[in-house]
Protein backbone atom coordinates (compact mmCIF):
# COMPACT_ATOMS: atom_id res chain seq x y z
CA UNK A 1 0.00 0.00 0.00
CA UNK A 2 1.53 3.30 -0.98
CA UNK A 3 -0.15 5.02 1.98
CA UNK A 4 1.40 2.63 4.49
CA UNK A 5 4.83 3.04 3.06
CA UNK A 6 4.50 6.76 3.29
CA UNK A 7 3.40 6.55 6.91
CA UNK A 8 6.14 4.11 7.83
CA UNK A 9 8.85 6.24 6.35
CA UNK A 10 7.57 9.38 8.08
CA UNK A 11 9.66 8.92 11.28
CA UNK A 12 12.76 8.25 9.19
CA UNK A 13 12.25 11.53 7.36
CA UNK A 14 12.37 13.41 10.64
CA UNK A 15 15.96 12.35 11.13
CA UNK A 16 16.95 13.90 7.82
CA UNK A 17 18.45 17.32 8.44
CA UNK A 18 15.90 20.05 8.16
CA UNK A 19 16.58 21.82 4.87
CA UNK A 20 18.35 25.11 5.46
CA UNK A 21 18.49 28.21 3.27
CA UNK A 22 20.81 26.54 0.75
CA UNK A 23 19.36 23.04 0.56
CA UNK A 24 15.68 23.98 0.52
CA UNK A 25 13.96 22.83 -2.67
CA UNK A 26 13.11 25.71 -4.94
CA UNK A 27 12.23 25.97 -8.61
CA UNK A 28 15.35 28.04 -9.09
CA UNK A 29 19.00 27.68 -8.21
CA UNK A 30 19.85 29.67 -5.09
CA UNK A 31 23.59 29.57 -5.84
CA UNK A 32 22.87 30.99 -9.26
CA UNK A 33 20.93 33.87 -7.78
CA UNK A 34 23.70 34.56 -5.28
CA UNK A 35 26.28 34.63 -8.07
CA UNK A 36 24.06 37.03 -10.00
CA UNK A 37 23.66 39.26 -6.96
CA UNK A 38 27.40 39.37 -6.39
CA UNK A 39 27.95 40.10 -10.06
CA UNK A 40 25.44 42.92 -10.07
CA UNK A 41 27.26 44.54 -7.15
CA UNK A 42 30.40 44.53 -9.30
CA UNK A 43 28.44 45.97 -12.22
CA UNK A 44 26.96 48.74 -10.09
CA UNK A 45 30.11 49.55 -8.14
CA UNK A 46 31.77 51.90 -10.70
CA UNK A 47 28.54 53.89 -11.00
CA UNK A 48 28.15 54.34 -7.25
CA UNK A 49 31.82 55.22 -7.04
CA UNK A 50 31.47 57.79 -9.84
CA UNK A 51 28.37 59.36 -8.34
CA UNK A 52 29.74 59.62 -4.82
CA UNK A 53 33.07 60.96 -6.10
CA UNK A 54 31.33 63.59 -8.19
CA UNK A 55 29.91 65.04 -4.96
CA UNK A 56 33.11 64.72 -2.93
CA UNK A 57 34.95 67.64 -1.41
CA UNK A 58 38.38 66.79 -2.79
CA UNK A 59 40.45 64.09 -4.46
CA UNK A 60 41.62 62.78 -1.09
CA UNK A 61 38.09 61.72 -0.15
CA UNK A 62 37.75 59.94 -3.48
CA UNK A 63 40.89 57.90 -3.13
CA UNK A 64 40.33 56.96 0.51
CA UNK A 65 36.80 55.89 -0.32
CA UNK A 66 35.08 58.21 2.14
CA UNK A 67 31.84 57.90 0.28
CA UNK A 68 29.01 60.40 0.39
CA UNK A 69 30.84 62.68 2.81
CA UNK A 70 30.02 65.84 0.95
CA UNK A 71 27.14 66.84 -1.28
CA UNK A 72 28.96 69.31 -3.50
CA UNK A 73 26.49 69.80 -6.30
CA UNK A 74 28.66 72.77 -7.22
CA UNK A 75 30.92 70.32 -9.09
CA UNK A 76 28.12 69.83 -11.60
CA UNK A 77 27.73 73.59 -11.95
CA UNK A 78 31.46 73.87 -12.62
CA UNK A 79 31.23 71.30 -15.39
CA UNK A 80 28.05 72.61 -17.02
CA UNK A 81 28.65 76.37 -16.79
CA UNK A 82 32.36 77.05 -16.35
CA UNK A 83 33.58 74.22 -18.56
CA UNK A 84 30.70 75.00 -20.97
CA UNK A 85 29.44 71.44 -21.08
CA UNK A 86 26.02 72.84 -22.04
CA UNK A 87 27.39 73.85 -25.40
CA UNK A 88 28.79 70.37 -26.07
CA UNK A 89 25.57 68.69 -24.98
CA UNK A 90 23.71 70.99 -27.39
CA UNK A 91 25.99 69.97 -30.27
CA UNK A 92 25.55 66.31 -29.44
CA UNK A 93 21.77 66.67 -29.35
CA UNK A 94 21.72 68.37 -32.76
CA UNK A 95 23.83 65.61 -34.31
CA UNK A 96 21.74 62.93 -32.60
CA UNK A 97 18.46 64.43 -33.80
CA UNK A 98 19.60 64.69 -37.42
CA UNK A 99 20.91 61.12 -37.33
CA UNK A 100 17.70 59.78 -35.86
CA UNK A 101 15.64 61.37 -38.63
CA UNK A 102 18.06 60.04 -41.22
CA UNK A 103 18.21 56.52 -39.84
CA UNK A 104 14.45 56.14 -39.48
CA UNK A 105 13.61 57.57 -42.90
CA UNK A 106 16.29 55.80 -44.91
CA UNK A 107 16.21 52.36 -43.34
CA UNK A 108 12.43 52.02 -43.24
CA UNK A 109 12.37 53.17 -46.87
CA UNK A 110 15.11 50.90 -48.21
CA UNK A 111 14.00 47.83 -46.28
CA UNK A 112 10.49 48.24 -47.68
CA UNK A 113 11.89 47.79 -51.18
CA UNK A 114 13.67 44.60 -50.17
CA UNK A 115 10.75 43.14 -48.24
CA UNK A 116 7.77 43.90 -50.51
CA UNK A 117 8.96 43.84 -54.11
CA UNK A 118 10.21 40.95 -56.18
CA UNK A 119 12.09 43.08 -58.66
CA UNK A 120 14.88 41.56 -60.73
CA UNK A 121 18.07 41.96 -58.75
CA UNK A 122 16.49 42.00 -55.29
CA UNK A 123 18.51 38.99 -54.18
CA UNK A 124 21.76 40.31 -55.65
CA UNK A 125 21.24 43.74 -54.09
CA UNK A 126 20.44 42.25 -50.71
CA UNK A 127 23.60 40.17 -50.91
CA UNK A 128 25.50 43.42 -51.53
CA UNK A 129 23.93 44.84 -48.37
CA UNK A 130 25.14 41.85 -46.36
CA UNK A 131 28.63 42.20 -47.84
CA UNK A 132 28.91 45.82 -46.74
CA UNK A 133 27.99 44.65 -43.24
CA UNK A 134 31.23 42.67 -43.03
CA UNK A 135 33.44 45.37 -44.50
CA UNK A 136 35.71 46.61 -41.71
CA UNK A 137 35.64 50.34 -41.01
CA UNK A 138 39.43 50.28 -40.65
CA UNK A 139 39.95 50.55 -44.36
CA UNK A 140 37.21 53.18 -44.89
CA UNK A 141 38.14 55.86 -42.36
CA UNK A 142 41.13 57.30 -44.21
CA UNK A 143 39.56 57.65 -47.69
CA UNK A 144 36.32 59.00 -46.19
CA UNK A 145 38.30 61.68 -44.44
CA UNK A 146 40.09 62.57 -47.66
CA UNK A 147 36.76 62.76 -49.48
CA UNK A 148 35.17 65.03 -46.90
CA UNK A 149 38.36 67.07 -46.84
CA UNK A 150 38.20 67.55 -50.61
CA UNK A 151 34.65 68.87 -50.51
CA UNK A 152 35.51 71.11 -47.56
CA UNK A 153 33.24 69.41 -45.03
CA UNK A 154 35.82 69.16 -42.24
CA UNK A 155 34.77 70.85 -39.00
CA UNK A 156 31.08 70.72 -39.90
CA UNK A 157 28.43 68.25 -38.76
CA UNK A 158 28.03 66.92 -42.31
CA UNK A 159 30.48 63.98 -42.03
CA UNK A 160 28.85 62.95 -38.78
CA UNK A 161 25.31 62.95 -40.12
CA UNK A 162 25.11 62.46 -43.88
CA UNK A 163 25.77 58.72 -43.83
CA UNK A 164 22.60 58.01 -41.87
CA UNK A 165 20.42 59.23 -44.77
CA UNK A 166 21.59 56.38 -47.00
CA UNK A 167 20.79 53.42 -44.77
CA UNK A 168 22.91 51.00 -42.77
CA UNK A 169 23.33 47.31 -43.56
CA UNK A 170 22.50 45.83 -40.14
CA UNK A 171 19.43 47.98 -39.65
CA UNK A 172 18.12 47.30 -43.16
CA UNK A 173 18.52 43.59 -42.49
CA UNK A 174 16.46 43.68 -39.29
CA UNK A 175 13.90 46.14 -40.65
CA UNK A 176 13.36 43.83 -43.63
CA UNK A 177 12.65 40.92 -41.25
CA UNK A 178 10.18 43.14 -39.46
CA UNK A 179 8.30 44.07 -42.68
CA UNK A 180 8.25 40.44 -43.79
CA UNK A 181 6.26 39.68 -40.66
CA UNK A 182 3.47 42.00 -41.86
CA UNK A 183 0.98 40.16 -44.13
CA UNK A 184 1.50 40.92 -47.82
CA UNK A 185 -2.28 40.93 -48.35
CA UNK A 186 -2.34 44.37 -46.70
CA UNK A 187 -0.21 45.72 -49.50
CA UNK A 188 -2.29 44.17 -52.25
CA UNK A 189 -5.57 45.34 -50.74
CA UNK A 190 -4.26 48.90 -50.49
CA UNK A 191 -2.98 48.74 -54.07
CA UNK A 192 -6.33 47.57 -55.41
CA UNK A 193 -7.90 50.53 -53.63
CA UNK A 194 -5.59 52.69 -55.71
CA UNK A 195 -3.06 53.70 -53.05
CA UNK A 196 0.33 54.93 -54.18
CA UNK A 197 3.30 52.77 -53.04
CA UNK A 198 4.69 55.74 -51.12
CA UNK A 199 1.36 56.12 -49.37
CA UNK A 200 1.27 52.42 -48.48
CA UNK A 201 4.79 52.67 -47.09
CA UNK A 202 4.21 55.79 -45.02
CA UNK A 203 0.67 55.15 -43.83
CA UNK A 204 0.45 51.39 -43.43
CA UNK A 205 3.84 49.78 -43.08
CA UNK A 206 5.77 52.39 -41.10
CA UNK A 207 3.08 52.68 -38.40
CA UNK A 208 2.89 48.89 -38.11
CA UNK A 209 6.65 48.69 -37.63
CA UNK A 210 6.77 51.43 -35.00
CA UNK A 211 7.95 49.05 -32.28
CA UNK A 212 11.07 48.26 -34.21
CA UNK A 213 11.51 51.89 -35.29
CA UNK A 214 11.48 52.84 -31.63
CA UNK A 215 14.33 50.42 -30.92
CA UNK A 216 16.15 51.84 -33.93
CA UNK A 217 15.82 55.37 -32.52
CA UNK A 218 17.21 54.32 -29.16
CA UNK A 219 20.16 52.59 -30.77
CA UNK A 220 20.88 55.67 -32.86
CA UNK A 221 20.69 57.88 -29.79
CA UNK A 222 23.12 55.67 -27.96
CA UNK A 223 25.45 55.46 -30.96
CA UNK A 224 25.61 59.23 -31.51
CA UNK A 225 25.82 60.11 -27.85
CA UNK A 226 28.71 57.72 -27.28
CA UNK A 227 30.61 58.15 -30.54
CA UNK A 228 34.15 59.42 -30.11
CA UNK A 229 36.03 58.58 -33.29
CA UNK A 230 33.86 60.56 -35.72
CA UNK A 231 34.00 63.85 -33.77
CA UNK A 232 37.67 63.24 -32.98
CA UNK A 233 38.75 63.27 -36.61
CA UNK A 234 36.15 65.58 -38.15
CA UNK A 235 35.67 68.32 -35.54
CA UNK A 236 38.54 70.72 -35.03
CA UNK A 237 37.04 73.87 -33.48
CA UNK A 238 36.08 73.96 -29.83
CA UNK A 239 32.60 75.40 -30.39
CA UNK A 240 31.56 72.32 -32.43
CA UNK A 241 32.81 69.63 -30.07
CA UNK A 242 30.48 66.89 -28.92
CA UNK A 243 30.05 65.75 -25.35
CA UNK A 244 32.09 62.59 -25.86
CA UNK A 245 34.99 64.49 -27.39
CA UNK A 246 34.87 67.14 -24.68
CA UNK A 247 35.01 64.41 -22.04
CA UNK A 248 38.11 62.89 -23.64
CA UNK A 249 39.86 66.26 -23.42
CA UNK A 250 38.55 66.79 -19.91
CA UNK A 251 40.26 63.61 -18.80
CA UNK A 252 43.72 64.84 -19.76
CA UNK A 253 43.08 68.35 -18.47
CA UNK A 254 41.67 67.56 -15.05
CA UNK A 255 43.73 64.48 -14.29
CA UNK A 256 46.81 66.69 -14.39
CA UNK A 257 45.20 69.32 -12.15
CA UNK A 258 43.98 66.62 -9.77
CA UNK A 259 40.43 67.98 -9.54
CA UNK A 260 38.94 64.50 -9.48
CA UNK A 261 35.43 65.39 -8.23
CA UNK A 262 34.83 67.77 -11.14
CA UNK A 263 36.14 65.14 -13.56
CA UNK A 264 33.75 62.58 -12.08
CA UNK A 265 30.85 64.99 -12.32
CA UNK A 266 31.64 65.30 -16.02
CA UNK A 267 31.68 61.50 -16.37
CA UNK A 268 28.31 61.22 -14.60
CA UNK A 269 26.85 63.83 -16.96
CA UNK A 270 28.14 61.76 -19.86
CA UNK A 271 26.65 58.52 -18.59
CA UNK A 272 23.36 59.66 -17.09
CA UNK A 273 21.14 60.50 -20.12
CA UNK A 274 21.32 57.11 -21.85
CA UNK A 275 20.87 55.28 -18.56
CA UNK A 276 17.86 57.38 -17.53
CA UNK A 277 16.17 57.00 -20.91
CA UNK A 278 16.86 53.26 -20.85
CA UNK A 279 15.35 52.84 -17.40
CA UNK A 280 12.10 54.39 -18.62
CA UNK A 281 11.80 52.29 -21.74
CA UNK A 282 13.75 49.16 -20.83
CA UNK A 283 10.78 46.78 -21.33
CA UNK A 284 10.15 47.80 -24.94
CA UNK A 285 13.85 48.11 -25.63
CA UNK A 286 14.86 44.67 -24.39
CA UNK A 287 11.87 43.10 -26.14
CA UNK A 288 12.83 44.85 -29.38
CA UNK A 289 16.47 43.84 -29.15
CA UNK A 290 15.60 40.27 -28.25
CA UNK A 291 13.15 39.80 -31.12
CA UNK A 292 15.67 41.30 -33.52
CA UNK A 293 18.28 38.90 -32.17
CA UNK A 294 16.09 35.86 -32.73
CA UNK A 295 14.94 36.87 -36.19
CA UNK A 296 18.38 38.03 -37.24
Amino acid sequence: MPNNIAMNSAPAEKQVKKPNFFTKRRDYNIWGVLVLALGSIIMIFPFVFAFSSSLANNAQDVYQMRWFQGWNWVNYKTVLIEAEMFKYIGNTLIITAINMIGVVLSNSFIAFGFARYEFKGNQAMFFAVLCTMFLPGTVMQVPMFVMFNTVGAIDTFIPLTIGSFFGGAGTIFMMRQCYKGIPGALYEAAMIDGAHPLYIWARIYVPLARGFIFTMCLNTFRGCWNDLFGPLIYITSDSKRTLSLALANFNTKYEASGDIPVLMAAAVIGMAPTIIIFCFVQKQFIAGMASAAIKG
Binding site: V62, Y63, Q64, A267, M271, C279
Partner: peptide, 28 residues
Amino acid sequence: FRVIYYIPTLTPMTAVTIVWGRLYSPKG
Protein backbone atom coordinates in the same frame (compact mmCIF):
# COMPACT_ATOMS: atom_id res chain seq x y z
CA PHE B 1 19.42 42.05 -12.55
CA ARG B 2 18.89 41.97 -16.31
CA VAL B 3 18.72 45.76 -16.34
CA ILE B 4 21.79 46.10 -14.11
CA TYR B 5 23.94 43.87 -16.31
CA TYR B 6 22.87 45.77 -19.41
CA ILE B 7 23.42 49.32 -18.14
CA PRO B 8 27.21 49.55 -18.70
CA THR B 9 26.75 48.85 -22.43
CA LEU B 10 24.81 52.11 -22.73
CA THR B 11 27.52 54.38 -21.40
CA PRO B 12 30.07 56.28 -23.51
CA MET B 13 33.60 54.88 -23.45
CA THR B 14 34.96 58.35 -22.69
CA ALA B 15 33.05 58.53 -19.41
CA VAL B 16 33.81 54.90 -18.56
CA THR B 17 37.55 55.42 -18.90
CA ILE B 18 37.38 58.49 -16.66
CA VAL B 19 35.79 56.40 -13.92
CA TRP B 20 37.93 53.30 -14.44
CA GLY B 21 41.02 55.46 -14.66
CA ARG B 22 40.39 56.46 -11.04
CA LEU B 23 39.62 52.88 -10.04
CA TYR B 24 42.85 51.71 -11.67
CA SER B 25 45.00 54.64 -10.57
CA PRO B 26 48.25 53.43 -8.95
CA LYS B 27 48.29 56.52 -6.74
CA GLY B 28 45.85 55.21 -4.15
